[in-house]
Design a protein around this nucleic acid. Structure first.
Lengths: 156, 156
DNA sequence: GATGAAAGACTCACGGA
DNA sequence: TCCGTGAGTCTTTCATC
């Protein structure tokens, strides 16, 4: 990707907030013809700047009443265990994100479950069942104070 | 919202993964006529099950090369400070999410910045500049091992 | 980047199970 | 109440300049 000009950034900002806006209205908002606008969007998609589109769903509305962050420490000197852990993660639907972090913990998992009973099963059947997991520390989300609809894009 | 039947859940799963799918194709995938499908989608939107639609953007592609999780503890017995902190958060673009958590920390912030210099400015100019902030602990994302495209929906 | 045109999608009012 | 049909309108998308 060459570089993103002001118009590209405006397109991204709009699409990030209104992913299903029509090309016609998108074009109008950035003062382009529909075809020029579409070409830019297609270019952004092809370049991997736009990775995809998603409906944002309210967790409670689909029965996901509990969100948790789980810090996981793997046993040292077990490269094998790390690879297996990462592989297993992919199959655990409850985990929507997992990051390797700097600092005193190894991995931070973001987890959605229906309730505490579900979370308990997740811990016992999945995480603690895993060889190489040395330590686990769970924090539940009491309240979500802020949830931006996308990334902070540079002003355009 | 009454309840979500199998078709609703299928619609949500598809829209969560392909937010810009056409109504025509969406209808075909769930074996409905376009109009019946559209009515269901509109109902899900009106009921707040679908909160919105968003383009997913690659952070590095827009210059956001560093992601961090920041744990913040506010001073106790300062209800005033909490309210002001939450209010300020809304204006800090770098913060895409903030949750009040159970356990030993108060708030968990998810932060996107361009680089360490930017993060440093964020800490000094914003967070540490805030009255009532008793303790701050930052962890940087070294690697994102998993990033699901949406919520774990019950099978349909 | 704009124009223009053909193909297709969107969306609604209506009638039926 | 929910679905399907049909039709008008708007959108998408491409070739062309």
């Amino acid at each position: 990707m060459q570089s993103l000009d002001r118009t590209d950034l405006r397109l991204l900002a709009i699409l990030q907030a209104e992913g299903r806006i029509t090309q016609a209205e998108l074009a109008e908002r950035v003062n382009l013809s529909p075809s020029a606008c579409l070409r830019r969007v297609q270019r952004l998609e092809a370049a991997g700047v736009i990775v995809g589109y998603a409906a944002r769903i309210a967790p409670e509305a689909v029965g996901l009443g509990l969100q948790a962050f789980v810090r996981v420490q793997l046993a040292r000197h077990e490269g094998e265990a790390i690879a297996r852990f990462v592989e297993r993660l992919a199959g655990w639907d409850e985990v929507v994100a997992c990051h390797a972090l700097s600092g005193d913990m190894d991995y931070l998992l973001q987890v959605y479950v229906t309730d505490l009973a579900h979370f308990s099963r997740f811990l016992l059947d999945r995480l603690l069942n895993e060889a190489g997991v040395a330590d686990v520390n769970s924090s539940f989300v009491l309240r979500t104070v802020k949830c931006a609809p996308g990334l902070p894009l540079p002003p355009s």
